[in-house]
Design a binder for these strands. Structure first.
Length: 294
DNA sequence: AACCGGGCCAACCGCCAGTTC
DNA sequence: GGAACTGGCGGTTGGCCCGGT
């Protein structure tokens, strides 16, 4: 049996919210709360809207602590830093930016920040820079980060990272993690490459792609030696090479090195990067599993 | 003035995971 | 144990706005 729709689409209003609807929703939620049931809320509030739509409207626009307006440079840096570590986990990134929603961050990234980054107006922080930023930024003390992550990832949900392979050269970051009391998400972030790896790229003309264990076992894997697989890049500059890969839809190095590109994408890139055509997500997963078995 | 294209962003869609019964 | 249901998430879309021609 298929899943029942969350609402009767024929009888709900769609499209932009009117001021009256906003007022009705705001008034209801402020008076009664959500009652833990968004699906039933629109009926109780006298709205002809889908419950999901109400939830989204409240969370992204009507909530009193929402911050409207442009992003600051500090916010830019935080977004870039976290994106480089964990990719498009917009809810996690937004949780680091008080008053910002995942939708805001996602839109901002897709429309502006990515272009700023490519234009060199913003730089991806190295992991060590990131650590120092986080540890020195009053709004992001280590303890608070852990608290935020606990909210974002209740017990047991760390498994949601399991499909993402972790990239590391097995030397970067882990020493620091031992001195910090980190939750799995933080450890996950620390396991990723930092800018120095691109420095290495520019020196030996390789992107260093390491296969590692599943995210769910990160906490046990800090000392594991990780096999490496090298992808040769054409004889152009590092920036050009990365930009070319992005043109193929690979996204940032996070996406490339974590195997989060599809076989189709690899095939698209094959004329220029034949090595990529043979490297599928399944290959990477298999390689990672093999490493676990050794 | 009319048209066009790009930027921006609110809203929707579909999927997944957790919870309830 | 499994079906039904809900919340949450990331990706995508559609429409408005604005500047250029």
């Amino acid at each position: 049996m298929g899943r029942a729709p969350c609402c009767d689409k024929a009888n709900v209003k769609r499209g932009p919210w009117s001021p009256d609807e906003d007022a009705a929703l705001k008034s209801y939620v402020e008076t009664h709360g959500t009652g833990g049931n968004w699906i039933a809320l629109p009926r109780k509030a006298g709205l002809r809207r889908c419950g999901k739509s109400c939830r989204l409207r409240w969370l992204n626009y009507l909530r009193p602590d929402i911050k409207h307006g442009g992003f600051t440079e500090e916010e830019d840096n935080i977004i870039c830093s976290f994106y480089s570590q964990m990719g498009s986990r917009w809810s996690v990134i937004a949780s680091q930016l008080p008053g910002r929603t995942d939708n805001d961050v996602k839109n901002y990234w897709n429309t502006k920040l990515k272009k700023k980054l490519m234009a060199g107006k913003v730089t991806l922080k190295t992991m060590s820079d990131n650590l120092s930023t986080l540890d020195s930024t009053p709004s992001l003390p280590v303890g608070q980060r852990a608290q935020t992550h606990n909210l974002a990832f209740p017990a047991g949900q760390t498994q949601s990272y399991s499909r993402q392979s972790i990239l590391t050269d097995a030397n970067s970051g882990f020493n620091k993690t031992e001195s910090l009391s980190l939750d799995p998400v933080q450890l996950y972030g620390l396991a990723f490459v930092d800018g120095s790896e691109f420095g290495e790229t520019s020196r030996n003309n390789h992107i260093n792609v390491s296969m590692s264990q599943e995210g769910s076992s990160i906490s046990d894997s800090s000392s594991c030696a990780l096999d490496k697989k090298y992808l040769s890049l054409p004889e152009n500059s590092e920036a050009e090479a990365i930009e070319d890969l992005m043109d193929f839809g690979f996204g940032f190095h996070y996406d490339l090195v974590n195997g989060l590109y599809s076989q189709d994408k690899a095939a698209d890139a094959a004329p220029c990067y034949p090595e990529l055509a043979d490297l599928t997500y399944d290959d990477i997963q298999l390689q990672g599993l093999n490493q676990n078995l050794i």
